[in-house]
Design a protein around this nucleic acid. Structure first.
Lengths: 255, 255
DNA sequence: CCGGGTTTTTGTCTGTCAGGCACAAACTCG
DNA sequence: CGAGTTTGTGCCTGACAGACAAAAACCCGG
């Protein structure tokens, strides 16, 4: 069953080898330019739901639909600065515990008005804060997203995929959880974000062994409904750390 | 040691809550526009080295420096189509076994001529082909990259990081290896890409167990220097498949 | 055609780690 | 002080990666 070629990407091909000179693309006196915007998929765990921050558009197109926060890139800022600036109009950006670039969307039809590229970011707000947001802005459970403008729903789902994956092989949990937390709380956050149960007892051992979390020594006031007072934990690093890469990857003879 | 606030992202903050209306960013009659280009970090294993495809710039700026293939985004194409089109000037894009978006660079100073955003792609060419490339273009070992134009060296390193990570938790190997291969060959590819030894015997079991590769039934002509003839393997899927997510992630009671 | 050299393949052992379960510990409330 | 509730610990199992050793399959020279 060996076709003698390998599977090929289905792409038209420039047969005659073309000029190897210069910039290599389209040419012309003035470079072609497009609009460019930064968008953010900001998650927070509220109640037991993973929620995303959306605002309701007041103007067409997509009047009345929900949209991701963001907007046009400014002349002197890079995308990271831009998304922070724009986000500041919707939430207190000091609440953002983590922010990373997600992907860039470039479908020529994604904005009906004019050609606009969008670079999406993934932002995380810890569960213990409740940022003040404007009238038109609110948190929506990712479990059932409302009708959304442009390709924003697709971007939001992409952000959730990324978050779920990273919870497994990084310490991003620190950006969902408060500075200190009990294991039951943490397993609640993980459950909400991942969409399935996470046993607190296992989570504890795993994160401890990975060195992601540590005990603070203190325990919770032990309030409400009786039961053993829970120990308080914290994340050791509050910046992104990647867990050991997969197995075959690991250099031999490494502990 | 509980400061009562969590670590905060170091960002200036818009104190007075600002207008919640409209597009939310800069406004003006005409949207601000920038140049936008697509670049590709194309890897191939040549000899026992992981190499990246570069071309030598003939014009300033960075005259004479090596650069990643790519160029300006066209008016009707999305970034994927654009990078394929531009790449076709440097290699036969039918040789590309894999192509995925990497990241977008937006430093205002990255191109001294005019503001240009760049979206980088990661491309992979299997080891068994030797694409014809133009005069100005060639393969360079990633182990020591030459002086490169703009921020291209940084992007190339970023691409290598991504490749190495993905070799561990996906089947991207299919895009580095020929359609059929022996385990010694495959372990060679992995070693070159990862930068450290990979035992063929373990690689075999791991990839078999993960269901990534399978035996073809045939074995290699058994040529050169004696020894047992090696069995030929192939990847089951020649499209990107992600290996089981990490452990804590896995839903409970899943086999 | 027999045995040494070479390469691949199979099997075994060990150590790490995740998930499940049961029980002990710690606390509240009546 | 005991019942109820929640949290923490210990133990077992099963999956899996890495190392190593031995077997298998082939070439070649004598």
């Amino acid at each position: 069953m060996v076709e003698n070629g390998r599977d090929r990407v289905d792409i038209p091909h420039a047969n005659g080898r073309t000029v190897p000179t210069g910039e290599g693309g389209l040419s012309g006196p003035h470079p072609r330019k497009f609009g460019h915007e930064a968008l953010a998929v900001v998650f927070q765990i509220r109640g037991d739901q993973l929620c995303v921050l959306l605002w309701r558009r007041a103007l067409p197109p997509w009047e009345g639909a929900w949209a991701l926060p963001g907007g046009r890139l400014g002349g002197e800022e890079d995308l990271g600065a831009s998304i922070r600036r724009q986000l500041a109009q919707k939430v207190d950006v000091r609440d953002l515990a983590h922010l990373e670039q997600l992907e860039t969307r470039s479908d020529p039809e994604r904005d009906p008005r004019h050609r606009t590229l969008a670079t999406a970011y993934l932002g995380l707000v810890p569960a213990d804060v409740d940022p003040i947001v404007p009238e038109d802005t609110g948190w929506h459970p990712t479990a059932d997203l409302p009708a959304m403008a442009f390709d924003h729903a697709s971007i939001a789902r992409s952000g959730r995929r990324r978050l779920r994956a990273k919870l497994g092989y990084t310490n991003v949990g620190f950006a969902l959880a408060p500075p200190e937390f009990t294991m039951s709380q943490l397993s609640g956050y993980y459950s909400s974000a991942l969409g399935h149960d996470v046993a607190a007892t296992n989570l504890r051992r795993v994160l401890l062994r990975r060195g992601q979390i540590e005990e603070t020594g203190r325990s919770v006031p032990s309030g409400r409904s009786g039961g053993r007072p829970a120990a308080l934990f914290r994340f050791r690093d509050r910046s992104l750390q990647v867990t050991d890469e997969f197995a075959v990857l690991r250099p031999p003879n490494a502990p």
